[in-house]
Design a protein around this nucleic acid. Sequence first.
DNA 1: TGAATTCCTATAAAAGAAATAGGAATAACT
DNA 2: AGTTATTCCTATTTCTTTTATAGGAATTCA
Lengths: 143, 143
Amino acid sequence: MKISAKGRYALDLMIDIVQHGSEKCVSIKESARRLDCSQKYLEQVAAQLSKGGLLHSVRGSSGGYTLTRLPREYTAGDILRITEGSLSPISCVESGECAKLSECGTIDFWTGFNKVIQEYVDSVTLDDLVRSKEEKAGNNYCI
Amino acid sequence: MKISAKGRYALDLMIDIVQHGSEKCVSIKESARRLDCSQKYLEQVAAQLSKGGLLHSVRGSSGGYTLTRLPREYTAGDILRITEGSLSPISCVESGECAKLSECGTIDFWTGFNKVIQEYVDSVTLDDLVRSKEEKAGNNYCI
DNA sequence: TGAATTCCTATAAAAGAAATAGGAATAACT
DNA sequence: AGTTATTCCTATTTCTTTTATAGGAATTCA
């Protein structure tokens, strides 16, 4: 039960855009260099976030991506659900498409599991993540 | 981020063994029939649970599996971790094998995520699951 | 001895994740 | 106008994991 690389990239990309996009657009080329990952793959992640309304895209030369809201207005859940899908531990919790639901002994367990997951990922904002990263960066000078 | 079929089978199998193994061993053949899944695949799941110390196996004719503890002494987490692996949302939370940990902005988020997952799955016992299933079975008469 | 089971291991099939690839559309800059 | 840098779109490949199938060995009971 793992979050995929795509989901991790998505969080890292959003953080990177906050940190480097105060005035201007942030291009995927830059971000991919900083995050040390495939530019082409990161493009796909960004496109998904843009399509999902989490990023605003600017095409053409000197284009790139900007946020559509303030960092504190995104939760980690918002970002992960776009790239990962639902984050629910099993699919029937959401779809309800199981013939045996009425006799299922585990559905309450799965529903509760889903609840704690969603509550946690929605309790952390992009702003929290950025501040966490900045703290870490600061610590480097203290070692 | 899904729990695999193997993990679901494992929970269902443990419940089935509680419900049908009060006196005797429960064979995989029976369980597979009741759970409506591949007998050969369920064998592999049972073997894993047995190897992990969660089931006691009896070989030979009229053999099968029994619990090694009381139902309330297993947590759902115990069962799922055997078949799924760690249940942590990303691997570095446990392995610590990431070169960039000191500058990672998301590690605290992932660590917290892992914590709520482990706490939840360990808050539910096999006994809880069995009782939940029995309740559901009872409800069928009330509709 | 025969039947029923767990045990062991190999392999195939299917699905999903991750990455690569090539180019179209768009916009800025000179 | 032309060049360059970007997003956008979609197809394909490669890799990994999951799921299932398969065959038989070892064990035990009747």
